[in-house]
Write a protein that binds this DNA or RNA. Structure first.
Lengths: 150, 150
DNA sequence: TGACAAATAGTATTTATTACTATATAGTAA
DNA sequence: TTACTATATAGTAATAAATACTATTTGTCA
């Protein structure tokens, strides 16, 4: 994310621009995700926000995430299994998924930024975005495999 | 799929090569998916196979799909929502997803086949495959939108 | 043909997602 | 500052998807 002065101000501004009411819960959920370097699930965000708002409900967290998603303020990172992950990094980027430990790594790539949309697709569909996911095994998991075999 | 003599023989052969026991249920599930042009969910396959095996259990269908997946005989097509979809088309191809009606369209693309793996990724990970998903709105849904507005 | 590892049916459990309703609150305008 | 109202929230329930369990059955191979 373009080096921001302050998560709180960034979030507040974004919410205002998108006609959201500024509630402490909503700000907290949004800030929590923006500050997160990984890709938390709704459940994880729920647990974190509860430290600040002990009786926030899961529904509020989830609903907030879905409404932020709808306005394009956050994105979903598909894990390929289990609960969905959220991501507040709006800069074009791609993901590597480890099939063993399920970790998801972000990366940027100019080549990928510039790939074309095939004509037979752009003829028939209005393409809004692209997702590129590389799948494989991370070095840690490869090591573990090796040790097992010996 | 490379024009196959016969779905049944194709499936049987693949199962044998991968040390699967040849059970009628397993063959039926696999054939059902291979014959499907779309990307059915486990639930859909379950309903279809039940016509042939009225008391097959959902667990058997799902377990079969997961074991085929593990051996690389089939793939998962992520819908981005709801239940996961399966695909027996092993030829490298990509997907367009309509964000409105959720339909998933296959397409092939030589440019995409040839994109490189960034060095900083191939250094740190053992990449096995890539997924490219284009997202947007299909023409049918665009039309529906227009009609609504008027 | 008999033995046995593996697969299945039937069902239960867990996990993830979405929905509901009474109450509370942010934003607005008097 | 206060009162109003649409929206958001807490608490909980319901639905949907994925996985797990066990007694029984069935492929496979000797």
């Amino acid at each position: 994310m373009i080096q921001m002065r302050n998560t709180f101000l960034y979030c507040k501004e974004k919410l205002e621009k998108n006609n959201f009411r500024i509630t402490p819960q909503r700000l907290s959920v949004f800030c929590c995700l923006v500050d997160s370097k990984s890709h938390p699930t709704a459940e994880i965000i729920y647990r974190r926000v509860r430290k600040e708002f002990p009786n926030i409900s899961f529904d509020t967290v989830n609903r907030t995430l879905l409404s932020l998603l709808e306005k394009g303020l956050i994105k979903i990172v598909e894990g390929g299994h289990g609960a969905r992950h959220f991501d507040a990094n709006l800069k074009q980027h791609y993901h590597f998924r480890c099939l063993k430990c399920k970790k998801i790594i972000d990366f940027e790539c100019i080549e990928y930024d510039n790939i074309n949309i095939p004509e037979d697709i752009s003829d028939k569909f209005h393409v809004l975005r692209k997702k590129i996911i590389l799948e494989g095994v991370c070095l840690e998991c490869l090591e573990k495999e090796k040790n097992k075999d010996n």
